[in-house]
């Protein structure tokens, strides 16, 4: 079942054309890894899906609703309703520094969804356990390591019960020895059939967890396919040269 349908996406920042003609589908339970060189438009593409960027042209359909159709957006309320079922995890975590871990998790369900405190509290306890941070509930983000911060950020996104999770280089700001604990949580989510789009430089993770890889270069999806096919037998020259460099 197709859950996200992106077609002919185009976007420029001033003169710079950043997305040239992006078309792809995401099916329910897909784990899609987006790879490609720096500046190729991966973040811009991902951010467009959750409306952190507005595209100039093209369409994005989410759960049969048009977030944008041929460059035309519906009103803010409708947009909010459509993006509501997606969560996003950022490279730099973007936790709320003035709130404890628990408060970071609970604030959106309480403020945005006006859920009952007992229900929210129960869920935050479960979610924290899932990311392995039950002992950090009452700690402020400043006291956490990068890996712990990112796990809190994932937990915070999970509190909204998203259908789709977007990750923009979730491990790129981490010391190498801390990436494992974050990837592990993401693997668990994949096993639980969360639909995910992950922009990443972690080729190992892409290979092991994703069921489809998109290779982007210069604002285009140059090649896409299963990890086996794309990693062992890339068809495009640009993919080949990128992968050679990535493994050096």
């Amino acid at each position: 079942m197709t859950i996200i349908q992106v077609s002919n996406l185009q976007k420029s920042f001033g003169q710079l054309s950043v997305l040239k003609n992006i078309t792809f589908d995401v099916k329910k339970n897909d784990v899609i890894a987006v790879i490609g060189p720096s500046g190729s438009g991966k973040s811009t593409m991902l951010r467009s899906i959750i409306h952190l960027e507005k595209v100039d042209n093209g369409s994005i359909r989410i759960n049969e609703d048009d977030l944008v159709k041929n460059g035309i957006y519906p009103n803010d309320r409708k947009i909010k309703q459509i993006t509501h079922k997606m969560g996003m995890v950022f490279q730099h975590f973007n936790l709320f520094p003035h709130l404890t871990v628990k408060e970071n998790l609970e604030i959106a369900p309480l403020v945005v969804q006006s859920e009952k405190i007992e229900i929210v509290r129960k869920r935050s306890t479960e979610v924290l356990e899932k990311v392995g941070l039950s002992d950090k509930a009452n700690v402020f983000p400043a006291k956490l390591s990068g890996g712990q911060k990112q796990r809190v950020a994932i937990a915070r996104a999970l509190m909204m019960n998203p259908d789709i999770l977007l990750f923009d280089e979730p491990t790129s700001a981490l010391d190498p020895e801390l990436t494992g604990e974050v990837l592990k949580v993401m693997k668990i989510l994949a096993q639980e059939h969360m639909t995910m789009i992950v922009v990443t430089h972690e080729m190992g993770f892409a290979k092991e967890v994703a069921n489809r890889i998109l290779f982007m270069d210069n604002g285009e999806i140059v090649e896409s396919g299963s990890p086996e096919q794309l990693f062992s037998n890339p068809k495009n020259e640009r993919t080949k040269s990128f992968l050679t460099k990535a493994y050096q």
């Binding site: 959750i50 409306h51 952190l52 909010k80 993006t83 509501h84 997606m86 969560g87 996003m88 950022f90 973007n94 936790l95 709320f96 604030i107 959106a108 403020v111 945005v112 969804q113 915070r156 996104a157 909204m160």
Partner: peptide, 8 residues
């Protein structure tokens, strides 16, 4: 951005 994607 974090607040926006959480629906604030």
């Amino acid at each position: 951005e974090a607040a926006q994607v959480l629906g604030f």
